[in-house]
């Protein structure tokens, strides 16, 4: 049976505008008839600069660091081919749960962000948003050689070469691709760093925020979000 194909309405040609339509400044009519100016970028998003989290001293910090190390909640965000190496970790063969590593579905509830492989500019933007939404202290694991020096995509027009210019990386796991065992070794290394109190890159990110933001804005041309995504 022939399906009737009707030409679609000719779309309105949109000019290049880096603010999403729902975030544009506009005037809306309230239910009582009065007009209200709405500027979502300024109204709905917090523009404050972030603060460093306080590092407590002595035994308290040691105990908290132990708790943080034993309870690593990984954000379920796969960025490249490495994301296929993460699902085996929950299978009987590797079983990361016995090391206190668990997967969480939202950035608000996770501490560890695994950048799993090459990172295109479009994904980098989402990765930054997700990273900044995670509560401190938070850790980044760079998985695969693509995050270290670009890997086999080193001369690509659209993938970054060095992750540590855009996000503070605690642990790199080299290889193309590293096996799940290497990831487990990476978690062990991260735990070691946290327990020694050396994994405070989240504070470093906030201290050097201007440098990171300059690097990020250099390649993300359509910056249509607040400077820090709370």
């Amino acid at each position: 049976m022939e399906k009737e194909n009707k030409p679609q309405d000719i779309p309105v040609v949109k000019t290049k505008n880096f603010i999403a339509p729902e975030n544009e400044k506009r005037t809306v009519t309230a239910p009582d008839g009065s007009l209200i100016e709405v500027d979502p970028i300024n109204d709905y998003f917090c523009q404050e600069r972030p603060e460093e989290y306080k590092v407590k001293s002595g035994a308290v910090e040691k105990f908290l660091n132990w708790a943080r190390a034993e309870s690593l909640w990984v954000l379920g965000f796969g960025t490249g081919c490495g994301s296929i190496e993460i699902p085996p970790l929950v299978t009987p063969r590797f079983d990361m749960y016995r090391y206190g590593v668990q997967m969480r579905p939202t950035p608000r509830q996770s501490n560890v962000f695994i950048i799993s492989g090459y990172l295109s500019v479009k994904t980098l933007k989402r990765a930054i948003r997700s990273y900044e939404q995670m509560p401190s202290p938070k850790y980044v694991i760079g998985l695969g050689s693509c995050t270290i020096n670009g890997g086999m995509y080193w001369d690509s027009y659209n993938t970054i070469n060095r992750l540590d210019h855009y996000l503070p990386v605690d642990v790199y796991i080299a290889g193309c691709m590293p096996r799940p065992e290497a990831l487990l070794a990476g978690f062990a290394k991260l735990k070691e760093l946290i327990k020694a109190g050396k994994a405070e890159k989240a504070n470093e990110y906030i201290r050097n925020l201007d440098w990171y933001k300059a690097n990020q804005k250099k390649i993300i041309k359509d910056w249509n979000m607040p400077d820090y995504n709370w």
Partner: peptide, 19 residues
């Protein structure tokens, strides 16, 4: 970028901080 007169290596070196 898929046009062949676009030099992807040069662009990458200028933009992405090669290690």
């Amino acid at each position: 970028p898929y046009r062949r007169d676009f030099d992807t290596k040069k662009y990458s070196e200028e933009t992405y901080f090669p290690r």
